[in-house]
């Protein structure tokens, strides 16, 4: 099995705050890795280091064969291969759903207008929103907005997708539609790294669960092992807390 994500010894400081304290992470192609941990444990920062939205203080990161930290790397080109979905959707409010998906297709992938439009329509159809192409974000529900955001990423045909708490900002009844799209993506063989608290989704869909705390990976393994027989006290305490809610 070849690893598509290879991150070794990743440290991140924010001023005096030491948020990542030497994280090693390898992700195989077609693998779905689920990252859990208390807030402030560094899981979102780790995700944001992988596509260099945050600049790691030290360490090495390679995604799809590209050295993400080399000054010679065209970071904008590299990011095309790494989709990212945010907690707060971050759709462009001044553009339609179609416009949101088309922007990077045209300006980064360099597609012509007609081709970009076709690809964008196809991506929206994949997330079940073909009929919402001409709606603006404000006219869409939270779940629909997040699916447009996923379409915006997959239209660029990424090799890896990063999900940063994709359902945390959603009303409970809208979570299902987003998880369904994620499950569909997983079945198509997409490599995914997901930071989330959706434990039942993790149990059903994840290949591996990683528990992070205080800037370090505490333990990892198949979902059943982590959820049912965690090895560490901290993991046990965290999972206990989550399941109470």
């Amino acid at each position: 099995m070849t690893s598509i994500v290879k991150a070794y010894g990743v440290h991140k400081h924010f001023g005096h705050l030491h948020v990542l304290k030497g994280v090693d992470l390898e992700v195989a192609e077609r693998e779905l890795v689920f990252v859990i941990g208390p807030s402030g444990s560094g899981k979102s920062t780790l995700l944001r280091c992988l596509n260099r939205l945050e600049q790691p203080s030290s360490g090495s990161i390679e995604v799809a064969g590209i050295d993400m930290l080399s000054p010679k790397t065209d970071i904008n080109h590299a990011r095309q291969h790494i989709g990212m979905v945010f907690q707060s959707f971050n759709l462009y409010p001044h553009m339609t759903a179609l416009g949101n998906v088309m922007l990077a297709l045209r300006k980064v992938a360099g597609k012509g207008k007609v081709e970009a439009e076709q690809l964008a329509h196809a991506a929206l159809a994949r997330v079940g929103l073909a009929d919402r192409a001409h709606h603006r974000p404000a006219e869409l529900s939270g779940g629909q907005q997040q699916r447009v955001a996923i379409a915006r990423s997959i239209a660029l045909e990424p090799r890896v997708m990063l999900f940063d708490e994709p359902t945390s900002a959603l009303d409970p009844e809208l979570v299902g539609s987003v998880l369904a799209v994620m499950r569909d993506l997983r079945e198509s063989g997409m490599t995914m790294i997901v930071v989330s608290h959706e434990m039942s989704f993790a149990k059903n869909a994840a290949d591996r669960v990683i528990f992070m705390d205080d800037g370090l990976i505490v333990e990892q393994g198949p979902p059943a092992a982590i959820f049912d027989t965690p090895a560490h006290d901290r993991t046990r305490a965290f999972i206990g807390q989550i399941q109470q809610h």
């Binding site: 596509n51 939205l53 904008n76 990011r79 971050n90 759709l91 462009y92 980064v108 915006r152 990423s153």
Partner: peptide
């Protein structure tokens, strides 16, 4: 304009 707008744009490869 929220910071997330720039991050979303940059994450899709826009300069």
């Amino acid at each position: 304009v929220p910071r997330g707008q720039i991050e979303a744009a940059r994450s899709t490869g826009l300069s």
